[in-house]
């Protein structure tokens, strides 16, 4: 733990990073656990891994429940492994809102892939907070990237706002659809069009698949011309038919990103995103520590609760003063502390 002293913690983190970079799956898996728990030790390892991050092709996979995302991801992983690249899969499933527990069954489909040295598969439970989870998954992506996995497939929970977060995280966003999924999916299609780099129409052996693919192509044709038109690939993840074609579409998108300079752009965006996040967290931590050390935090809270101060003006004021190096004291401090 970080609190155990800076030097031993640094040495432990170095040892850990070394094992991880040497391909030890246990070290990678343990790191992801600490990331999920927001343990400070995770940052100690992640800072050492930072130079190694940025090589993997990260594919975010999203789509409605029932579209067959998990089956498709397994099929993609199998196809990738057959061609050579190492693969990490991060699969997210919902936690029960009542108990916090979760049943994670995605590994069932892996079969013999499970023991493939070039594959790493990790199941995540959403733990009731999708926002917080996306942060953990983003760091987990960095961890598997640093560990040398060449392709990273990230699966999200159902459809919803999460696909926007996936597109922040991934180089390529793959949207999975299937025929006959119902009206809510129809409504969601418009939103999916915004984020999709590649469409997969799964269950192509079922009636209606061709029509679903046709609709998407028609909708894509309506908008303004774009530098990259998302391909629509029909396939059956269950039989494996069309999976190779999908993989080629994903690779074409990666090549497009590199050739058009967008790959670097994505890296910068992601760096900005991460830096903003961490800076925000760091500033907040420092500010709270300082206010608490001064003993004024409780007084400010009281002042707001009593409606003596408004939190909008106060937070701006405190931020200004903290950055200028002085926090001052709230007026009426004596009364507030007297309670």
């Amino acid at each position: 733990m970080a609190s155990a002293g800076a030097e031993p913690a640094r040495r432990a983190a170095e040892g850990w990073a070394e094992r991880l970079l040497a391909g030890e799956k246990r070290a990678l898996a343990r790191l992801i656990t600490l990331i999920e728990e927001r343990d400070p030790a995770a940052s100690d390892v992640l800072r050492l891994l930072h130079p190694r991050v940025g090589q993997a092709h990260v594919v975010g996979v999203t789509g409605a429940a029932g579209a067959g995302k998990s089956t498709l991801i397994t099929a993609l992983a199998r196809e990738l492994r057959a061609r050579g690249p190492s693969v990490a899969v991060l699969a997210v499933d919902p936690s029960s809102p009542l108990t916090g527990g979760a049943l994670l069954g995605d590994r069932i489909r892996l079969g013999d892939l499970s023991t493939d040295p070039g594959l790493f598969f990790r199941s995540f439970a959403s733990r009731g907070h999708l926002g917080g989870l996306s942060r953990a998954v983003a760091d987990a992506v960095r961890a598997v990237d640093a560990a040398g996995y060449q392709a990273v497939l990230v699966e999200t929970v159902g459809a919803g706002q999460s696909e926007v977060e996936v597109s922040e995280l991934a180089h390529t966003t793959l949207v999975v659809l299937a025929p006959n999924l119902g009206d809510d999916v129809q409504a969601a299609k418009a939103g999916l069009l915004e984020v999709a780099d590649v469409f997969a129409v799964n269950k192509a052996d079922l009636p209606g698949a061709r029509e679903t693919a046709g609709e998407i192509r028609a909708m894509l044709g309506l908008g303004p011309a774009r530098p990259w038109t998302p391909p629509v690939v029909e396939l059956s993840a269950r039989t494996g038919e069309g999976v190779a074609g999908l993989l080629e579409a994903l690779e074409r998108h990666r090549d497009f990103l590199v050739a058009s300079g967008r790959w670097g752009e994505k890296l910068r965006r992601s760096a900005a995103h991460q830096l903003r996040d961490l800076l925000g967290e760091e500033l907040l931590r420092a500010a709270l520590a300082r206010l608490e050390a001064e003993g004024s935090w409780q007084a400010w809270v009281e002042a707001v609760a009593r409606r003596e101060r408004d939190p909008y003006t106060l937070s701006e004021e405190l931020a200004r003063r903290l950055l200028a190096g002085a926090t001052g004291r709230p007026r009426g401090e004596g009364e507030a502390r007297g309670l």
Binding site: T71, L103, G105, D106, I108, R109, G111
Partner: peptide
């Protein structure tokens, strides 16, 4: 024919 793999159902 290939082999059958079960889907997770709890």
């Amino acid at each position: 024919y290939g082999v059958y793999r079960e889907e997770p159902v709890f």
